[in-house]
């Protein structure tokens, strides 16, 4: 299945794009999607604890299952003001 990744701020920079398509095995969870991204973008790994996973606009956990066509947003806090 394919999910659309939406990335914000620093995470978007690490992924070198605000959006990308990610292919995952059927039944994969949000946490598995994060791990899959970390395998390609090592700078992501230290940001997991401070990043919220958001599926189709609703907060999710590592264990939340993804479905084909879902949007998974990776949302860090911003510090600037």
């Amino acid at each position: 299945m394919t999910v659309r990744i939406a990335a914000f701020a620093r995470i978007g920079e690490i992924l070198r794009s605000g959006t990308l398509e990610l292919s995952l095995p059927g039944g994969a969870t949000a946490g598995a999607a994060w791990q899959s991204l970390c395998a390609s973008f090592a700078q992501l790994a230290p940001l997991r604890a401070s990043t919220r996973l958001v599926i189709n606009g609703a907060l999710a956990d590592d264990g939340t299952p993804l479905h084909d066509g879902d949007e998974l947003a990776l949302l860090p806090p911003f510090g600037g003001g």
Partner: peptide, 18 residues
């Protein structure tokens, strides 16, 4: 509730850095 933990220092650039 939204962000239980701050990001590790230095991983989120400030306006001055980013």
């Amino acid at each position: 509730c939204l962000f239980p933990q701050p990001p590790p220092e230095g991983t989120v650039p400030t306006c001055a850095e980013g």
